[in-house]
Simulated scan of single mutants.
Amino acid sequence: MAQRIGIFGAALVFLLACSRGDDGGEFSEGSGGAGGMATTVAASVGTGGEGDAGADASAYPPKNCDELVLCGDYSRGCTGCAVKGPCLMAYEGCFGDKSCVEFNMCMAGCEDDVGCQGGCAMGNPLGAERYNALVTCIICDSCATSCSDSASFCP
């Protein structure tokens, strides 16, 4: 259990780091849903993002988010596609839930401290469970190729 907590803690750091990437992504922040953290497709889908060559805005989201190649973050690339498509329920279930948001904030403060990460999960098991469902959906199920650098997080 502690190893799985550490793995998903590392995944959190990974996704948080990705979300602080450049602003040249494929999507823009929107409002509504998921506590205002949901994103909407911008008119410029298929432009500006690395790994989106040949993406067609009329075909968004693609049937297979992994086609976007770039792992991305919650607003672009495969991760952005996944949270708007196959992982939407897990995304809204996490960011629309106070316990999951609090778990994310706790984990963000831990950086690479596995003991701290374990404390976050022990103190907030529901938040950890919802976050783990989101990470599993994105990294293991929807973006296995695009986010292959993080495949070690998968069971």
Rank of each mutant, 00 (worst) to 15 (best):
M1C: 07
Q3H: 08
R4C: 03
R4S: 10
I7T: 10
F8W: 07
F8R: 10
A10F: 09
L12A: 10
F14Q: 04
L15V: 08
L15Q: 08
L16I: 13
A17N: 13
A17H: 02
C18E: 14
G21T: 10
D22L: 12
G24F: 09
G25K: 06
F27I: 04
S28L: 06
S28I: 07
E29H: 12
E29D: 09
S31A: 13
A34W: 03
G36M: 11
A38F: 02
T39Q: 09
T40P: 00
T40F: 02
V41D: 03
V41T: 06
A42H: 09
A43P: 10
V45Y: 15
G46S: 10
T47G: 03
T47Y: 10
G48P: 04
E50P: 11
E50W: 05
G51W: 04
D52Y: 02
A53R: 10
G54C: 11
A55H: 01
A55C: 04
D56H: 08
D56A: 13
A57I: 10
A57V: 14
S58H: 09
Y60A: 15
P61Q: 11
P62M: 10
C65K: 02
D66Q: 01
L68Y: 06
L68I: 07
L68F: 04
V69T: 15
L70E: 12
L70V: 01
L70M: 09
D73R: 06
D73H: 09
D73M: 02
S75R: 09
S75A: 07
S75I: 02
C78L: 08
T79N: 12
T79M: 14
C81L: 06
A82M: 01
A82V: 06
V83H: 00
K84D: 11
P86W: 00
P86Y: 00
M89W: 00
A90H: 07
Y91W: 13
Y91S: 08
C94L: 01
D97W: 07
D97I: 01
S99V: 09
C100E: 01
V101K: 08
V101G: 01
E102Q: 14
E102D: 15
C106W: 05
C106M: 09
M107D: 13
A108C: 00
G109A: 06
G109E: 03
E111F: 11
D112Y: 08
D112R: 12
V114A: 15
G118D: 13
C120N: 08
C120P: 10
G123Y: 06
G127F: 04
A128W: 11
R130S: 02
R130K: 15
N132T: 15
A133R: 13
A133H: 02
A133K: 14
A133G: 00
A133V: 12
V135I: 13
C140M: 06
D141S: 13
D141T: 14
S142F: 00
A144I: 09
T145N: 15
S146P: 05
C147I: 05
S150D: 01
S150G: 05
A151R: 10
A151P: 00
S152W: 14
F153K: 03
F153R: 02
C154F: 07
C154H: 05
P155C: 01
P155V: 03
P155Q: 05
P155F: 05
